[in-house]
């Protein structure tokens, strides 16, 4: 950086919308009674990213999604999709969405339903391609009200993607599914991500955020509490565990670079490190590498660490 000017705290909030961003929420707030479901949330998602909105129940994921789809007006702040008002972007066929539940009507076949939804978009995908993408080729002529939970979910997914929109928003797409159905669902998703679409999905399954995304945004009590790749989030919060076997006096190990915390179990020393490379190098220089084991943090640890220390956002203490 050549010049770095003095930093002033912002006195005005400017609503800047960059048309290259698929999603942009600016200081969005939404109350339900005394509960602040979303609390001054600002986030932008550039085109082409696959992003997980991760958080426990009540973190504000569904409210955030409803606001950015234009289903729910924010109390304050602003939502934009591709630089347009959400309703406008939806009207122009740039968005496909799968709400948390519902959207399937009785007495129509899968083909009739998808043909209708696709027909509302100006340049939809051919039906056969949609069926293949959602892995529902064999369900084409089945009645929508006679599907299993996993099949229904794939049809709902097909409704979100059949118009070939640029942005696809999925609210807890796998919440009600068993393990096998979840795996099938993510196979459909992979086909979609490879088409260069912007995908935003919410989940409280950590492994899904870990495996299927470019970026994870962690929400807690209506605020962004972490934002980065799943690796970055793990690194920022949970620590890699470096374990070695040591005998005798070993308190010096706690002073090695990167080590934040030490735990001794018999002859086994577990070092929790923020910089495992530096810790291992230092161990090597000290000749202390014996039965070395390095275990990276999993996202579960990171998630728990992040979401447990945020305070609940209510206006009244009693609620």
């Amino acid at each position: 950086m050549i010049y770095s000017g003095p930093r002033h705290p912002p006195t005005f909030v400017f609503v800047t919308t960059n048309t290259s961003d698929a999603v942009s929420l600016t200081s969005a707030t939404k109350h339900f009674g005394p509960v602040r479901a979303v609390d001054g949330l600002t986030l932008t998602i550039p085109r082409g990213q696959t992003v997980a909105l991760l958080g426990p129940n009540g973190a504000g994921k569904s409210t955030t999604i409803a606001m950015l789809l234009g289903l729910l007006p924010p109390d304050s702040g602003h939502a934009a999709l591709f630089g347009l008002e959400p309703e406008q972007a939806v009207r122009q066929g740039m968005v496909g969405a799968m709400p948390q539940e519902g959207g399937l009507i009785p007495r129509v076949t899968v083909r009739e339903l998808l043909t209708f939804v696709a027909g509302t978009y100006s340049a939809p995908l051919p039906l056969d391609q949609v069926l293949t993408l959602a892995r529902i080729e064999d369900l084409r002529d089945r009645r929508v009200d006679r599907l299993s939970g996993g099949q229904a979910q794939r049809v709902r997914f097909a409704m979100a993607v059949c118009g070939d929109p640029d942005l696809i928003v999925l609210d807890e797409p796998t919440a009600a599914l068993d393990v096998a159905a979840r795996r099938e669902f993510w196979e459909s998703m992979r086909g979609l991500a490879s088409r260069g679409k912007t995908i935003l999905f919410s989940t409280h399954y950590l492994d899904e955020a870990d495996e299927h995304t470019d970026r994870v945004i962690v929400l807690g009590h209506g605020r962004v509490i972490a934002d980065g790749t799943s690796a970055e989030i793990k690194q920022a919060t949970a620590l890699t565990t470096v374990s070695v076997t040591a005998e005798g006096e070993c308190s010096w190990l706690a002073t090695l670079p990167g080590v934040r915390h030490m735990e001794v179990k018999g002859t086994r020393v577990h070092l929790r490190s923020g910089d495992s490379d530096a810790t291992v190098m230092a161990l090597a220089r000290a000749g202390a590498v014996r039965d070395l084991e390095v275990v990276p943090a999993d996202l579960e640890d990171a998630f728990v660490a992040l979401t447990t220390d945020a305070a609940p956002a209510t206006d009244k203490e009693s609620v």
């Binding site: 968005v95 969405a97 709400p99 519902g102 959207g103 399937l104 009785p106 118009g163």
Partner: peptide
């Protein structure tokens, strides 16, 4: 009323139909 209960009206709001 059935459509609303089934979330169909919301799904329609998420399509380009006005």
């Amino acid at each position: 009323a059935e459509d609303r209960a089934a979330g169909w009206l919301r799904q329609l709001r998420l399509t380009p139909l006005a």
